[in-house]
Amino acid sequence: MSTLQDKYSSVVSAAQSAGVSNLQVQEQDGILYVSGNASNTAAKDAVWNALGAIDSTYSASDINIDVQVAGLAAGATLTIATEDSNLNIRQEPSTEAAVVGKAAKGSSVTLVEQTSDDWWKVKTADGQEGYAYSRYLRA
């Protein structure tokens, strides 16, 4: 095992225990790349919690974690997990796009499609469809 794999072995173990699928652990140019798919946000959090236990500032440059919640079915319920404010639902997957709706923190929206890693197409309770930044959506 390389020194990076040793250093971050608990992160890899956490990913395995959380059932992260398609787990890849590869060292390249001095960075340990850990990637895979999680079936829900809790599994993804488990991996990040493991990193936090090693480095509570999350500023390490020698590890890159790309665990995405994937494979969700259309119609899945997503909970809004913003800091305090409402989540903007946008016309296009970009913060530059027009806001077509809002969803309050703690409320739910329905998944239409996981169109990309960072933006998902959702439908609000009012029936408004648009794109929401996935980091604020808990599955």
Binding site: D29, W48, G52, S56, T57, Y58, S59, I65, D66, D118
Partner: peptide, 26 residues
């Protein structure tokens, strides 16, 4: 903050831009 740093790294790591210098004060 630590929570913010985590969220930022989650988003930036997903971009896989190679070496990132997370030089902010946490």
């Amino acid at each position: 903050s630590s929570a913010q740093a985590r969220k930022i790294k989650e988003s930036v790591d997903a971009l896989k831009v190679g070496k990132v210098n997370y030089n902010y004060t946490v």
